[in-house]
Design a protein around this nucleic acid. Structure first.
Lengths: 251, 251
DNA sequence: GCTAGCTAATTGCATATGCAAAAAGCAAGC
DNA sequence: GCTTGCTTTTTGCATATGCAATTAGCTAGC
C-alpha cells in the first residue's frame, strides 16, 4: 500500500531564489508539514523534471541536498523515499528515556504516579508557561534504571493538539515515547538548569532534600500549536550529559 | 600581505569516492589542519580546475558544499577565502564568557584569583583526568556580570601544547578567549552536571553552601594533543542554558 | 584629486549529454 | 521451485557550454 499519492501534491515553486533551491524548499515543506510522511515515495527525477519543467541536473541538485540534510534517502533503482526524522542531533535532543536507559545497559521500567485531565490549574500554568484555561493531561512519572530511580518526569499534554492522549493510559509506553509516535513536532525548546530537590522530589528519587539535580525543561510545538511540555529532574551526582564535537561539526 | 601562499600547497586527491568529494575533503583537510588559516585565499575555480584536471562544475560543486558547511566564504569577483571557525554551533559550544555576559546586556569583568604553573598535582590530575607529570598552568578565575559573580572558572592549560601561555598573564583577556586566539582545537568534549557548591565556591559566588550549581566541564584537543580543560561553575538558580530547534536542525 | 563609467575576473546558475553503478523484477533454463 | 542471468529503471557522477550577476580595479574625463 502506498501511504501517500505524491502525484496529487503540488510541488509548488515560489519563484524566489535559485530554481534548485525553490525545488528543495518545496519538497522540504511537503515533508516537514507532514503531507509526505516518512516512507512516502518521492517521484523519480524524471517525473519531477517534467512536472517542474526543470532539467534533471537541477532536480538532482535539490534532491542531493535534501538527502545530505537527512530528509530523504535515495537508492538507485529503488528510488527516493522520505526518511524518518533523525532521533537525535545534539545531546539535548528529543530522546526517549527508555532508549537512554537501555543505552547504558540497564533495565528500564516506569510508573505513572499521578494523572489528572482537565483545565490547567494555576500552579501548572506558571510552571509550564501555559495559556489560561487550556485543556491538558497532567502526568507525573518515575522512570527507573535497574530498579533505582532514574528521572522524575512531570508533563502536560495539550489535549487540543493531541486529543488521542485523553484516551491513552500510558501503561505500555511512557508518554514521551507515545507522543513521538502519535504526534508531530516542528519546534522544541530546551532549557537546562540546576535546582535543589524538594522534599517530595527527593523522596521519590531516593535523595536527601536539597540535593542538586539537573532540571531539563522541554516544550514542543507543531506549527505554533503547543504539543507538550515536560520537566525532567535528574539526580545531579549520578548524571552527566556529555557531548563531543569539533569546530566544524559533530564527529 | 598574503598570509599563505596557497599555490604551494598540494591539494592532494586520494582517489577514494567521487571526484568532487575528494576535492572537498582535500581542501577541508588543508583548512582544518591549519595549513590554510582563516582569511587565506582559496585559488579560484579556474586555477583549481587546471591544477586538479577536473572540470569547473566539479570543482564548483566541492566549493559550494564547503561554503554551505561554513568552512569558506565566497564572493563573486573577490574570490573564495577560508572562513573563521563558527563561534558557536550548539548551546554547548565553545563560547566566550565575555560575549555570553555582554549578550545578556550586562557589564563584564573578570579577575584571576590564583595561578600556579608547573607539574600537575594529584588533585588536579584527578579532577581533569590528566596524565601524570604533565606541565600545566593552573588558573582560578571569577567572572562577573554587572558586578555580581557570574561563573567560577578553574582551568588547566597544557604548556606542552600551548607554550606561549606560560608567559601570558591574562590581565587583558581571560584565558578562554586568549586560547581561542592563540591555539587551535579540533576536538572538544563537554559534560554538564549538577553539583552542590562547596563552602569556598559558595563564598566566591555569593551563595549558601550546598546550593545547586551547574557544572560545565570542557576539555579540548588539537589533533590528539590536549590543549586545555576547564570547569565552569554557574549558580543554578540564576542560570539556564536554552536551545531551540526543530527535528531537522536548528532554527 | 576625484568621480563616473568601463573592463574583466570570479562565482552562480541552468541546461544538455553521456555513461556508470546499483538493484528490482522478469525470463529462461534447470 | 530454484537459480542464473538479462533487462530496465533509477540514481550518481563528470563534463562542456553559455550566460548572468557581482564587483575590484582601472581609466578617462573633469
Amino acid at each position: 500500500m502506498r501511504l501517500t499519492d505524491t502525484t496529487q501534491d503540488a510541488v509548488a515553486l515560489d519563484g524566489v531564489g535559485p530554481l534548485y533551491d525553490q525545488i528543495r524548499r518545496a519538497i522540504r515543506d511537503l515533508i516537514v508539514s507532514g503531507a509526505w510522511p516518512p516512507g512516502t515515495g518521492v517521484p523519480p527525477e524524471h517525473a519531477l523534471m517534467e512536472r517542474l519543467g526543470a532539467s534533471r541536473m537541477t532536480v538532482h541538485r535539490a534532491l542531493v541536498q535534501l538527502a545530505r540534510e537527512g530528509l530523504i534517502t535515495r537508492r538507485r533503482r529503488s528510488g527516493t523515499i522520505v526518511a524518518s526524522p533523525p532521533a537525535s542531533h545534539t545531546m539535548f535532543d528529543i530522546l526517549s528515556i527508555p532508549d537512554e536507559v537501555r543505552g547504558l545497559g540497564q533495565d528500564y521500567a516506569f510508573r505513572v504516579l499521578e494523572r489528572r485531565d482537565g483545565k490547567a490549574r494555576s500552579a501548572e500554568i506558571a510552571r509550564f508557561e501555559l495559556g489560561s484555561a487550556v485543556e491538558i493531561a497532567h502526568l507525573t512519572l518515575l522512570h527507573s534504571a535497574d530498579g533505582a530511580p532514574h528521572v522524575l518526569e512531570e508533563r502536560v499534554i495539550h489535549l487540543a493538539t493531541v486529543p488521542d492522549a485523553a484516551t491513552e493510559d500510558f501503561t505500555a509506553m511512557p508518554p514521551g515515547d507515545w507522543l513521538l509516535r502519535h504526534s508531530l513536532w516542528t519546534q522544541a525548546e530546551h532549557a537546562i538548569s540546576a535546582v535543589a530537590a524538594s522534599a517530595t522530589q527527593a523522596g521519590l528519587l531516593g535523595l536527601a532534600e536539597g540535593e542538586p539535580c539537573l532540571l531539563v525543561e522541554r516544550r514542543t510545538w507543531n506549527q505554533e500549536r503547543p504539543v507538550t511540555a515536560v520537566r525532567l529532574l535528574y539526580p545531579g551526582h549520578r548524571h552527566r550529559f556529555v557531548g563531543r564535537f569539533g569546530p566544524y561539526g559533530n564527529v
